[in-house]
Amino acid sequence: MISNTGFWAFLRRDLLLINRRRGEVASPLIFFIMAATFVPLGTTPDAELLKDIAPGIIWVMALLATLLSAESLFASDYHDGSLEQMLISPQLLVMPVLGKVTAHWLTTGLPLTLVSPFLGLLLSLPAAGYLPMMAGLAVGTGCLSLLAALGAALTVSLQKGGLLLTLIVMPLYMPVIIFGSATAQYSIQGLAWSGPLAILGAMLALAIALCPVAIANVLRLTTIN
């Protein structure tokens, strides 16, 4: 039997719910791979050119894939009334929120990180770039998930919130994408890549500290009005 409060309870529950609908996990992943394949088709198959832009393309696609899947983060809880029950739970709202965002990262950010080497192959990423790219993605997609959850909370009650969510979250993604793709580019250029990775880690720490509190407050506002 499961308790219905706290971080682990919500993490387990969301993973269970997602497990019952595995198609939802696959869609962002397939999008990630498909969209990235279009870039060589639209530009050039030249490996020399592609290797320079590969980290950037992979990061932009990861960003879009995260945004695509973010809309559903609170949507079903909003429509079936679970979110209202969360609001009046005696425990703080921050832990359930963090649990849900973690579940989101485990089912989008982590799989994206794991399939990214495959995209690296398609886009002729130099060998030195793989490990830093994956490390950067693993940390950076955490930031992406947290910020996307903030956007999802703000737009949860709107009929067509998905596009607006993208619009309000994208500018906030700017620092993540800069340092994320720099991590891979540094190592390709033979520089130490721990610097940008450390900054990504710092941004993740800041996001973990601030975003769940903000999301909890936003949910109190947008769930019921």
Binding site: L17, D80, G81, I88
Partner: peptide, 17 residues
Amino acid sequence: LSELLFLGHQSAVKVTL
């Protein structure tokens, strides 16, 4: 809130469970 049971318009039933 520990002593409260609330049932709203929506039942908070998860259809996949």
